[in-house]
Design a protein around this nucleic acid. Structure first.
Length: 138
DNA sequence: CTTCTTACA
DNA sequence: TGTAAGCA
């Protein structure tokens, strides 16, 4: 028996507020994603009603974002998903993009490591220089 | 009071 | 995405 606490798995519809609390995002974000066609909540008058499908997609959207995927890439991936393009194609594309982003992220880490190393040597020089000048002044 | 749209930062 | 304005 499903209680009101696991609407994520139920067919129950959720309000924008409930969605925000559950996924820790702002209403602006949900409306923004809808404008980008990443999710399509049902409209009852002007109010939005998020379905189980929207919740599943949002979950993937947020994950993809954490992995550095652009909203456009995520949208295309999501489209393949429900277009029934075949799980294999879906998986292959996702893997391809993931590999691409992984390489990109590793490259960025190397750059960051270099910048950190440089800053550290500069600061070591600065520290010695400072002590030198202090002793001369004293 | 909450949600929605639109426009601007 | 945040914020603000004007409605419903």
């Amino acid at each position: 028996m499903t209680t009101e606490t696991d609407k994520t798995t139920t067919e129950e519809t959720m309000t924008i507020r409930e969605m925000c609390d559950l996924f820790e995002v702002t209403p602006r974000t949900l409306r923004f994603y809808e404008s980008k066609e990443l999710i399509f909540p049902i409209r009852e008058g002007t109010r939005r009603h998020f379905t189980r499908r929207d919740r599943a997609r949002l979950k993937l959207i947020l994950r993809g974002k954490r992995f550095g995927f652009s909203l456009e890439e995520i949208r295309q991936l999501l489209d393949l998903y429900d277009m029934g393009e075949g799980k294999t194609v879906q998986l292959a594309r996702t893997y391809e993009l993931a590999q691409q982003h992984l390489d990109e992220m590793k490259g960025q880490r190397e750059e960051l490591d270099r910048a950190i190393a440089e800053l550290e040597t500069q600061m070591e020089w600065g520290a010695r220089e400072l002590e030198k000048r202090r002793s001369n002044a004293a």
